[in-house]
């Protein structure tokens, strides 16, 4: 993302080079603070997931083991929630891809009435305090009997990722040299063929990254799922809230966290490689 661009921009600054040791001190301080604030909590969760006994005030678990993995993974509610979350994310991302990719293409390559305004209208979903927006949507869903239904939650998630799914592909399509498409027309490809054989493959890495990002975002979305879905529709994060609030066995939450976090982190780091700094920074107005 932007961070990637930032590193590459970092040209040597001769006038600051003289204070290099000082800058390194600052770096070490920041690194230590961030390690304590970011890495330690995640490590502690990982430790909890693999500990069978960890009583205060022992610095490390007294007994490590996979007992709670077995227990967590034999719970029906965990499998139900995981299954539901997977189904929900797949459906939402698939629907988003079907409706958003053609729209992105239109935004990036066609001219039509109100194009710029309509394009910016997707900002609306992010220009209001999110939970307030969710409550007003919930009020509408109440009249439509969508509260506590799969499709109610799916619609909320769809709106949530709409901007990603429009803006990132638009940036991808715009980054493609138009001459590439013209060259394909030139050798005899019709417009649809050009889109399928040239435009889509060229934009594919970025689009896949957007899909991945949307999938993970939907999988972990908590606010909307809780407000619209709970208790009937129990996605994994909703289940996790239950674990945090009511579960006496600490390890269940830890196991679930590790289970969920590792693949998503890998997926997201992968996604980050493909999404250019521009696409991201633009979405955030930076």
């Amino acid at each position: 993302m932007t961070a990637i661009t930032a590193t590459s921009q970092k040209a040597p600054i001769s006038s600051l080079a003289t204070i290099r040791t000082k800058a390194d001190l600052a770096g070490i301080t920041l690194a230590i603070i961030l390690t304590l604030a970011v890495i330690v909590p995640l490590l502690v969760v990982a430790l909890w997931a693999f500990s069978e006994v960890w009583r205060y005030p022992h610095l490390l678990p007294q007994q490590f083991g996979l007992r709670f993995w077995n227990q967590t993974l034999s719970r029906d509610d965990v499998w139900d929630a995981l299954g539901l979350s997977l189904r929900l994310s797949t459906v939402v991302v698939a629907v988003a891809a079907v409706i958003c990719l053609p729209a992105s293409y239109a935004f990036s390559r066609m001219r039509f009435f109100g194009r710029d305004t309509l394009f910016l209208s997707f900002l609306a979903a992010h220009a209001f305090p999110k939970f307030g927006l969710l409550v007003t949507i919930a009020a509408i869903f109440l009249r439509l009997d969508l509260i506590g239904t799969f499709w109610g939650v799916a619609l909320i998630q769809l709106v949530n990722i709409l901007m990603f799914m429009i803006w990132i592909p638009v940036a991808a399509f715009q980054a493609i040299d138009k001459r590439m498409e013209e060259a394909a027309r030139d050798v005899g490809a019709g417009p649809l063929r050009v889109f399928w054989s040239i435009t889509l493959p060229q934009a594919a890495p970025t689009i896949i990254a957007a899909l991945l990002l949307s999938f993970v975002t939907t999988f972990y979305e908590t606010d909307g799922a809780w407000l619209i879905g709970a208790p009937e529709i129990r996605t994994t994060p909703v289940l996790m809230i239950g674990f945090i609030n009511n579960e006496m066995v600490i390890q269940y939450g830890a196991v679930l966290s590790v289970l969920l976090w590792v693949p998503s982190a890998i997926a997201l780091i992968f996604a980050r490689r493909f999404i250019g700094g521009d696409a991201f920074a633009r979405g955030f107005g930076g």
Binding site: V40, P41, L42, V44, V45, W48, Y220, T222, P237, M240, I241, F243, I244, I250, G253, A254, S257, L260, W261, S264, A265, L268, I269
Partner: peptide, 15 residues
């Protein structure tokens, strides 16, 4: 950015 807030909440309590 890659840690869902629900996992963050859990980690917060543990730490």
């Amino acid at each position: 950015l890659f840690v869902p807030s629900i996992i963050l909440a859990y980690a917060f309590i543990r730490v």
